[in-house]
Design a protein around this nucleic acid. Structure first.
Lengths: 155, 155
DNA sequence: TAAGATTGACCCATCAATCTTT
DNA sequence: AAAGATTGATGGGTCAATCTTA
């Protein structure tokens, strides 16, 4: 069992609280301005960045860090709202694609300015260039390690 | 409306995903090893650090970034399990205190090694000393700004 | 009237079980 | 039997309304 030094523990606690606080504000602003929860926005962003505007359910679930069942229900609601559609995968008929609709693309573009402005005001404006680079670097490593628990060694 | 440069946006997205992934692992490990969710652990840590092992509901809600109603229900469950008790505040009888019980203190000490070890393996071990100091510093500013939305200026 | 806390109605996520396809 | 996705049961969170005390 390892100990964690005070500086690293402070980094952990501060980042936890700050993330919770920022997420709460961003969610509330996006919901209030364009009536869209942040979880929907994340799905739309990932779909638009994907080739053909479509992703497998399992792939999408992994990207937005959501359980498969949680994603099924999230996509249910978004499909109900017309922002995405489901199609079958020809090569493997167990799988399904979630496809961005034109309406979904427009909703994303309508929401983006509010969201990006919020990220600026509540997060990015507080970082120097060096700090931003450090965060991007650090969290790329942390993220990769947490997602790939098979490399976990008790040490 | 501001734009956010690619480095800061990368810092934001990476930190979001990494936090979600790390929280998921820590929660799962704590739940599996000692049968306690992370939300309970956070409450216990805050109570133990407070003078007299007690905090007002509103104060506790703010610290763990939870709505007041959410906290009421969280404390309901923890009191049911015997880890905390509620008392009334003499000077202002609208308010109530949540007090750490001896059982709660023991549960915290039983859970701490697992949690601290998890924070080390999934987060702290990936940071250099300089990076840890940077994160603690950055998130102290971000947290303060997000909590105090009254200082928010559209700019 | 306002503040602190709680409750009711509702939304959303997870685990375990299930169904289909490989 | 295993993988991809979905469903049922359940736990836990938020907003708006309510109750009590200041």
């Amino acid at each position: 069992m390892r100990q964690v030094d005070p500086i690293r523990m402070a980094a952990w606690r501060r980042s936890l609280d700050a993330h919770a606080a920022v997420l709460r504000v961003l969610n509330s602003e996006l919901e209030g301005m364009v009536g869209m929860p942040l979880s929907w926005y994340d799905v739309l962003v990932n779909l638009e960045a994907a080739p053909g505007g479509q992703l497998r359910m399992s792939e999408l679930a992994e990207r937005i860090v959501l359980s498969q069942s949680g994603l099924t229900r999230l996509i249910d609601r978004m499909a109900q709202a017309g922002l995405v559609e489901r199609t079958h995968c020809d090569s493997d008929r167990r799988g399904r694609f979630t496809v961005l609709t034109e309406e979904g693309r427009q909703a994303l573009h309508a929401a983006a300015p509010t969201h990006i402005d919020g990220v600026w005001r509540h997060f990015a404006t507080h970082l120097s260039d060096e700090e931003a680079a450090t965060l991007a670097d650090v969290y790329a490593r942390v993220d990769a390690a947490a997602r790939d628990r098979s490399v976990e060694v008790v040490d």
